[in-house]
Structure formats: C-alpha cells, structure tokens
C-alpha cells in the first residue's frame, strides 16, 4: 500500500449527493480478477459518451464534455470534493481501486458510506469527513479559482487552503498509523495470533456446533 503523509493537490469538485460505487466503477469492469487498471474506467458511464466494456482502448473513446472531471482545469486532480453519502451502495473495493488508479489520494465529503470509507484506508486513499458548511465553502472556493489546491497533512490532521485557512479533521489512530506507514492490516493482526487462537479455542468449546 502507498504511504500517505502530506499532499498538496489540485482539487476537483463533484457536486452531487449519494454518488454510489456503481457510478464510480460500473459492474462490467468488476469481471477483472486483478486489482489494478481501473482508473481509465472510473465514472465510466458519466465520463464517456459511448458504452464502455472491459478491454476497450479507452483513449479512443469519446469523452463527455459535460462531465466535471473532463474539464481541462481539473486534469491531474488528486483531491476529490464530494457531497454527502459518497461511496454508497455496493461493497466493491474496485471503487477505491479505480479512484486511486485515476490519481485521487484524498476525498473530502460531509459523509461517506461505511464500507467504502473503510475500503479507502486499505488502499492508500484518505477519506476526510468535514462539516457540511466547510465542504460548501471549499466547493465555492474551488469553483472560483482555477487551479485551486489544498494541502492535506495527515500527521497534523489539517487541511490548509491557499489563503491559509485551516480545517482540522478526525481520523482513527489505527487507520492513521497504517496509512502513514503504508502498513497492511494482516501483518499487524497476525502479531496477535496467540490471542486469536486462544479466543477460538474458548469460543468453539462454548459453541461446539460452530
């Protein structure tokens, strides 16, 4: 997993609530047995004018000029600004894989769906919950200034705007630790192997039908 410490990134706004994981990566791309290569199909149905299928040469497809991420000013964006309940619906981890592969490292929204939120951390993507009015202010600022960037400092848990405003954000200590160090949970959990084994023995003795 990629480490995440500090990012100074271009911001792209996606001004709609309840963006679901079906929209982030449509089902036909879930047939892949790989973890990578989903970026060109992120938001496929919104992003292109034709219907996408796995194996197509995406560089030859016609982009939808009305889709926000296709605007020239947002190319190379690493910070996605979103509305409430981002990432709802299907548990597909292909959604964070696609966003990360597209180039995003941070998503800022008033709220996220639980499974998606969780999945982000496993893939070096930092989802940040920020109060609605603050997100709103960021939307307005990003719309006004072309090339609007934000600095996200995970260590200090701070977002800094170009005019020096600072927004603090919350993140679980455990998730922060894993993200900063690029650690995979499995290795960490297996340090507690003995605890798991002794729990398991007791549990099975109490419920022998399991």
């Amino acid at each position: 997993m990629n480490k995440f410490t500090l990012l100074d990134g271009l911001v792209a706004p996606m001004d709609r609530a309840n963006v679901d994981t079906d929209a982030i990566i449509p089902k036909q791309f879930l047939k892949s047995i790989k973890r990578s290569g989903f970026g060109p199909n992120a938001f496929d149905e919104w992003r292109y004018l034709d219907h996408g299928e796995p194996g197509m040469d995406n560089s030859k497809r016609q982009l939808n000029p009305d889709f926000v991420l296709n605007q020239a000013r947002y190319q190379g964006a690493q910070v996605l600004l979103a509305r409430e309940n981002f990432g709802c619906g299907s548990s597909r981890e292909h959604a964070p894989w696609a966003l990360e592969d597209y180039g995003f490292r941070v998503i800022i929204a008033p709220s996220f769906a639980d499974i998606f939120f969780n999945n982000c951390f496993k893939n070096g993507l930092l989802p940040i919950r920020l109060a609605e009015d603050k997100v709103d202010a960021l939307f307005k600022a990003a719309a006004k200034a072309v090339g609007y960037r934000l600095t996200i400092d995970l260590e200090k848990q701070l977002i800094t705007t170009p005019d020096g405003q600072r927004y603090a954000f919350e993140v679980d200590a455990h998730r922060k630790y894993c993200l900063i160090n690029g650690l995979d949970d499995i290795g960490l959990t297996l340090k507690h192997k003995d605890d798991i084994k002794s729990f398991e023995a007791k549990h099975r003795a109490a419920q022998p039908w399991l």
């Binding site: 548990s91 981890e93 499974i115 959990t189």
Partner: peptide, 23 residues
C-alpha cells in the same frame, strides 16, 4: 453480519478476524 471489501476478505481469510470499530 456485514459486507466487507476485498482487502477485508483477504484479512478474514488470513486471520479469521475483522478489524472493526463498534457501530
């Protein structure tokens, strides 16, 4: 019972546990 992502699928396979916080 709840849904998990693929990294968690691997985690449960490998450790029989899920890392979670109480809701």
């Amino acid at each position: 019972a709840h849904g998990i992502g693929t990294s968690e699928v691997e985690h449960v396979m490998a450790t029989q546990c899920l890392v979670a916080k109480k809701s």
